[in-house]
Amino acid sequence: MCSLTHNDLKRIFEKLDKNGDGLVSLDELNWLLDKTGGSSTSLQELEEHVVGKKSLNLDEFLFFYDSMLKINDNGDDKGEVEEVESDLAKAFEVFDLNGDGFISSQELECVLKRLGLLEQQSGNKDCRAMILSYDTNLDGQLDFEEFKNMMMLTTS
Score class of each variant (00 low, 15 high):
76 D>Y: 11
96 D>L: 14
154 T>I: 12
83 E>N: 14
10 K>A: 01
89 A>Q: 10
82 E>M: 12
135 D>F: 06
83 E>R: 15
86 S>V: 06
38 G>F: 13
109 E>D: 09
107 E>H: 12
33 L>G: 02
141 Q>A: 07
41 T>K: 14
24 V>Q: 05
149 N>V: 12
83 E>G: 12
149 N>T: 13
146 E>S: 06
98 N>R: 15
138 L>Q: 08
26 L>C: 11
140 G>R: 11
39 S>C: 11
84 V>R: 13
154 T>D: 05
84 V>P: 05
144 F>P: 00
136 T>I: 15
124 N>T: 03
54 K>W: 13
109 E>P: 01
119 E>F: 11
15 K>H: 10
33 L>P: 04
47 E>H: 08
92 F>N: 00
134 Y>F: 14
137 N>G: 03
25 S>F: 08
91 A>Q: 14
65 Y>E: 07
79 G>A: 05
116 G>C: 00
91 A>K: 15
126 D>C: 02
79 G>F: 08
145 E>Y: 15
96 D>R: 15
156 S>I: 15
17 D>S: 06
31 W>F: 06
148 K>N: 02
127 C>G: 10
106 Q>K: 10
48 E>L: 12
139 D>W: 12
94 V>K: 15
121 Q>S: 11
97 L>Y: 07
26 L>S: 00
133 S>P: 03
104 S>F: 00
97 L>W: 05
26 L>R: 02
91 A>H: 13
63 F>I: 13
41 T>E: 14
70 K>D: 01
110 C>K: 07
129 A>D: 06
15 K>Q: 15
118 L>E: 10
154 T>C: 10
151 M>H: 02
33 L>C: 05
100 D>L: 13
82 E>P: 08
101 G>W: 10
65 Y>P: 08
124 N>Y: 00
44 Q>D: 07
55 S>D: 06
54 K>P: 07
137 N>D: 09
35 K>P: 02
135 D>Y: 10
150 M>C: 06
72 N>L: 04
147 F>L: 08
37 G>I: 15
88 L>W: 09
154 T>F: 12
32 L>G: 07
25 S>N: 03
58 L>N: 05
2 C>H: 05
93 E>P: 09
31 W>V: 02
5 T>P: 09
38 G>H: 12
124 N>S: 01
123 G>Q: 04
140 G>V: 01
92 F>V: 05
126 D>M: 02
60 E>R: 13
71 I>G: 00
110 C>P: 01
48 E>V: 15
114 R>F: 08
16 L>N: 02
